[in-house]
């Protein structure tokens, strides 16, 4: 069968995975039509200069299933997600927009709860929801509720971050335990009946980014490893910066229950989504200082240095295993878990 041609005929779930197939759609279909120097950087948000001010602008849509899960719901996910995308540009997020797509028959009580959560998340992070839109579609034409958020923020003075700025020697810090969000949603999903005490890590990282900027550490890249997880994000950075990346299995922070669930179901935590974590690439000399700064934040207590940037094998990520072996951490081809955010 001609899988290639057929794949182009119809959209499959893999097109939304954040892995290779999404990436190919981005480079083959979207970039050629919308091409401009800002978009082609493929960062989490766009860095724009308007009337002498440097702004970060970003958008994201949320289709998570189920819409309520331990530790949060689609509402705070949508607010925090966009706050984080703007923050990763080295910016202070200020205003966000909210677009709601609702399915006919969706309970207003649930909507009310989601809106309250969104208001709470925005307030906690100190951003305002300043514009929005609501559409309702007939029953069965959408699944309960989909949310789009966009946002803008001011890039901090003198800060310039991009996934293309990683340099050999940089140390890589992850701000806490990985894979919590994806495993929480999976566990909450209908059909998977097992109990655990894990909950989403959904959180706004704007205060953490502010402390990182104020520390004046020599940071080159900030990224939040959401869909596709740490593995996918590191691959994107290796490729954007044309460098190699080495991480150490023994240093990856992982909750016991998350590790256990991954073992049971055969998932690699490196590819599971996070919603309140960041990866920071920092000059070797400043790494320890930055680690302390991140650990001082309420969402950064479990931060660790997990690896470093090297010159060899540009575009590739390798993991040193606990037994002293080594293996490639490739970009996922397709979808490990659909509708996780």
């Amino acid at each position: 069968m001609e899988t290639n041609a057929m794949k182009q005929d119809k959209i499959v779930l893999d097109h939304g995975s954040g892995g290779k197939i999404s990436h190919n759609m981005m480079t083959d279909m979207i970039l050629p039509l919308f091409n401009n120097p800002t978009l082609s950087k493929l960062d989490d948000g766009a860095a724009l200069t308007i009337a002498g001010k440097r702004l970060a602008f970003s958008t994201d849509s949320y289709v998570v299933d189920p819409i309520f899960f331990p530790g949060g719901n689609i509402g705070d996910l949508a607010v925090n997600g966009t706050i984080n995308d703007i923050s990763m540009c080295g910016a202070n997020p200020l205003y966000i927009s909210v677009g709601l797509i609702l399915e006919e028959g969706f309970e207003t009580e649930k909507l009310q709860k989601i809106l309250e959560t969104m208001a709470g998340a925005a307030k906690k992070a100190g951003v305002q929801i300043v514009t929005g839109d609501t559409k309702v579609v007939p029953k069965g034409k959408a699944d309960k509720i989909f949310i789009n958020t966009s946002g803008i923020g001011l890039i901090y003075n003198g800060v310039e971050l991009s996934g293309s700025f990683a340099r050999p020697g940089d140390q890589i810090i992850v701000s806490g335990t990985i894979a919590d969000h994806g495993i929480t949603v999976l566990s909450a999903r209908e059909g998977l009946r097992f109990d655990s005490d894990i909950q989403t890590d959904s959180a706004a990282l704007n205060t953490m980014v502010k402390s990182i900027v104020e520390s004046e550490c020599d940071v080159h890249v900030l990224r939040d490893p959401t869909r596709g997880g740490v593995g996918t994000t590191l691959n994107e950075i290796a490729s954007q910066s044309n460098v190699g990346i080495r991480i150490r299995e023994a240093d990856l922070p992982l909750r016991g229950a998350v590790k256990g669930t991954c073992e049971l179901l055969g998932f690699d935590p490196l590819y599971i989504a996070n919603e309140g974590k960041l990866l920071a690439f920092v000059s070797k000399n400043d790494a320890e200082q930055l680690l302390e700064v991140i650990r001082a934040n309420e969402y950064g207590k479990d931060a660790r240095i997990i690896g470093e940037v090297v010159e060899s094998d540009p575009g590739k990520v390798f993991l040193e295993t606990a037994i002293g072996g080594s293996r490639r951490v490739d970009m996922l081809a397709g979808e490990q878990l659909p509708r996780i955010c």
């Binding site: 016991g256 256990g260 002293g324």
Partner: peptide
């Protein structure tokens, strides 16, 4: 969820001894 019987069998010293 208990992880007993996993970590013991990922012990890097044990593994390195076997490799040797």
């Amino acid at each position: 969820m208990s992880l007993k019987y996993v970590d013991e069998f990922r012990d890097s010293n044990l593994a390195k001894g076997l490799i040797k």
